[in-house]
Design a protein around this nucleic acid. Structure first.
Length: 283
DNA sequence: CGTTCCTCCTGAGAGC
DNA sequence: TGCTCTCAGGAGGAAC
């Protein structure tokens, strides 16, 4: 259930376990989970058998495992995807979609995904950056993220600030929760037009985005390492202090007024009506 | 061309 | 209880 911190937590957990291991077998239990691989599940499995995982990588919410062939096993967790490391003798999880076993007697890697919005794919030549991830912007925790370029690009858009935060081609890794949290910290309403943000406001927003993501990464990091085998990437999430998301009717931690929920894009936007007033019409 | 919005799934919880 | 409705941390691509 992944935004950047959850995906990063999973990546870090996998990175302590997978590099150097050889894939012995791949079992695809639901074809939709590998739907982007045109030749089909059997071909997908055959490409992976015998390959050695050489590392782990992430951009935004995309995760991939570089292989000794120079290709990569690409993964997006969608809304409900999880990676679990479990013993082969443990019972199948309810929504187990793909199972990868390794050459030795080690735990297997399971891809579990209730809603099947997530997927695995074989990325030809994608060890450094899979082609299907190339259009995704760097995320704000990436040392090569260019703040000035982001600010200029953002302010040229004709859209609202929350929409822009969820546009992964502008800035990646942010989803509905961290968007609402960063906007709360910035005292910005979701509908604020990005073209009207000053450079200073963008810089402040970016600072809050980095803070909330980094705090969540630290929290998430504690949950993944209990037992490598029983890992559920979602665990640490709820220890983060949430100020807006999901708090409809509860008091704003700054001013005490009840947090409001507004329908937004077939989803929800949470904000403080006092700290985050809708922008005044400018024309 | 840029921006908006529908759709792909399964399941939980609320209300009747 | 069982039905219907809404909602859920995402993103590609059709529609405008």
């Amino acid at each position: 259930m992944p935004e950047l911190p959850e995906v990063e937590t999973i990546r870090a957990g996998l990175d302590r376990w997978l590099p150097g291991r050889s894939i012995a077998d791949v079992e695809v239990l639901h074809p939709r989970s590998v739907r982007n691989h045109e030749p089909g599940p059997d071909h997908f499995a055959s490409l992976l058998r015998g390959r050695t995982i050489t590392g782990t990588a992430r951009r935004g919410k995309y995760l991939w495992l570089p292989l000794d062939s120079g290709d990569a096993l690409l993964c997006h967790l969608g809304m409900s995807g999880q990676f679990l490391l479990k013993g082969a003798d443990e019972p199948a999880d309810k929504h187990l979609r793909v199972r990868l076993s390794f050459a030795d007697d080690q735990p297997e890697l399971r891809f579990v995904d209730q809603r099947i919005f997530g997927y695995l794919d074989y990325a030809d030549g994608g060890a450094d950056l899979p082609a299907s991830v190339a259009h995704i912007a760097r995320d704000p925790l990436d040392p090569l993220f260019d703040d000035a370029e982001y600010s200029a690009r953002l302010r040229r858009k004709r859209t609202e600030v929350k929409r822009s935060l969820l546009d992964q081609t502008l800035i990646s890794g942010i989803g509905n929760i961290y968007a609402d949290e960063a906007l709360w910290r910035s005292r910005l309403h979701w509908s604020h037009p990005v073209a009207e943000l000053t450079e200073e406001q963008v810089a402040e927003l970016l600072g809050h985005i980095r803070d909330v993501l980094a705090e969540a990464v630290v929290q998430g990091g504690t949950s993944f390492d209990s037992q490598y085998v029983n890992v559920n990437g979602q665990g640490g999430y709820f220890s983060l202090v949430i100020n807006a998301y999901g708090r409809e009717g509860e008091p704003c931690k700054r001013c005490g007024d009840p947090i409001r929920r507004e329908p937004w894009m077939n989803r929800s936007a949470y904000s403080c009506p006092t700290c985050q007033p809708p922008p005044a019409a400018t024309r």
